[in-house]
Write a protein that binds this DNA or RNA. Structure first.
Lengths: 237, 237
DNA sequence: AAGTGGTCTAGACCACACA
DNA sequence: GTGTGGTCTAGACCACTTG
């Protein structure tokens, strides 16, 4: 077992040790991990240090702790993946491609019935946007967005021709929560025309509802040609 | 500000307080959060307690800490979403639907060139599986899977007609890391036949490579009809 | 040079779940 | 009851970074 990191804190080393034993299968699911007092002796440290390591493992879902019973290796039930959905412009620029942006439509209107559903607002004004993101000159994504003007009045004064709405919102509006829905859809003729793909081409649809406290800030649907874009997700943050 | 939870630990309350100030926009991006010593006085507690709250916020990506400089509200750069990809059988059962499973093919073979690429193995034997998952009698997903027999020799003796491979692996094989790739693809005639959908129907493709330490355990691709299945992701791990 | 956060200690009391 | 983990204290030393 070469390659153990030297420059790590003690609680980090304890965590890695236990993690290693779990990952290798040495300590299988439902195995009872030594009590904190035993680990204290083993590592010759205080209980807080041991506790920090075990708490970290609990947060990561690798172990389960029950008072009086002890700490057990968890039986994994799901693949928990961390999906980093970046602002499209930042994503394109970061990958060294040339970013382009075209605003199709920007309207400021009293919320329609659909708008009110998507933004869970009883009434008020919204900004509705349609735009296309380009990477190296090719259409990368078609974006349809609603912004709740009751929550983000400043959005009414922004000209989204110069700055993509996602980037503007990310930088100017604090948000606390978001839900994503990822599906696959066939391009209709309109979508196909916007994205320069054939009708019926499979597209990845990423929908996102963004909250601040209990109020919805924005709803967005981004459509990516299926052959041009995939979401990559790594296991656990 | 009603509704503050009473039965929470102190570090939890501190974390929520700060979280609330950030979410509400009161403390915007790049705002300097009070020093730990100030928070100690404000909450009349020890530094460790304050530190625990701030460390938690750091892990969640809401603040950034720099020695000598202080703690600052982070500028969010990505939407980090936690994607829980459950074992399909568990998922179907949990949603109250009837689960069905059909094994199409199970072969035990010397790894082909493709197999070796997917599993990053120089040589050895693999199990290759094709199967269909059903929910309430309708095809929900087409699954193609490779299992590295060098790493999971027990898989050679399993009859996957009675137990879906995903469920078996989840319960029997410890794994430490996984990568996911999510794309949209058009169904070819073969896929369409297996899933009882029309050719060209958009499908959600979820590919997963699973590691244990540095060895790859399994590769799987699951295809869901785009109109039958979406992935839901919540903000934050 | 000084002040920040990172880490750690050696105790302590408590709630809770199990025997 | 008893022993577990959950939480907290009042200190301490250190590394790092910035003024």
């Amino acid at each position: 077992m070469a390659g153990t990191r030297e420059n790590a804190s003690l609680h980090d080393r304890i965590r890695r040790d236990i993690e290693g034993r779990i990952m290798s299968g040495e300590w299988g699911p439902a195995f009872r991990i030594p009590y904190e007092h035993q680990l204290m002796e083993e590592y010759a440290c205080s209980r807080m240090t041991v506790n920090k390591a075990l708490s970290s493992l609990t947060e990561r879902g690798l172990v389960e702790r029950r008072k009086r019973a002890g700490t057990y290796v968890a039986v994994p039930k799901v693949h928990r993946a961390a999906l980093d959905i970046a602002d499209i412009r930042a994503d394109v620029v970061a990958s060294g491609r040339r970013y382009g942006f075209a605003l199709i439509e920007q309207t400021d209107r009293e919320a329609t019935a659909d708008d009110r559903t998507f933004l869970a607002m009883p009434r008020g004004r919204v900004v509705a946007l349609s735009c296309v993101h380009y990477a190296d000159g090719r259409p990368l994504a078609l974006e349809d967005r609603l912004i709740n003007l009751e929550q983000v009045p400043a959005a009414a004064a922004v000209n989204f021709e110069s700055e993509p709405p996602g980037a503007w919102l990310m930088a100017h509006v604090p948000w606390s929560d978001a839900r994503h829905r990822i599906t696959a859809v066939n391009a209709d003729t309109d979508i196909a025309a916007r994205l320069s793909i054939r009708t019926d081409q499979a597209c990845l649809s990423v929908e996102r509802w963004t909250w601040r406290t209990s109020e919805r800030i924005t709803y967005v649907r981004q459509l990516f040609p299926g052959d041009m874009h995939g979401l990559e997700a790594a296991f656990r943050p």
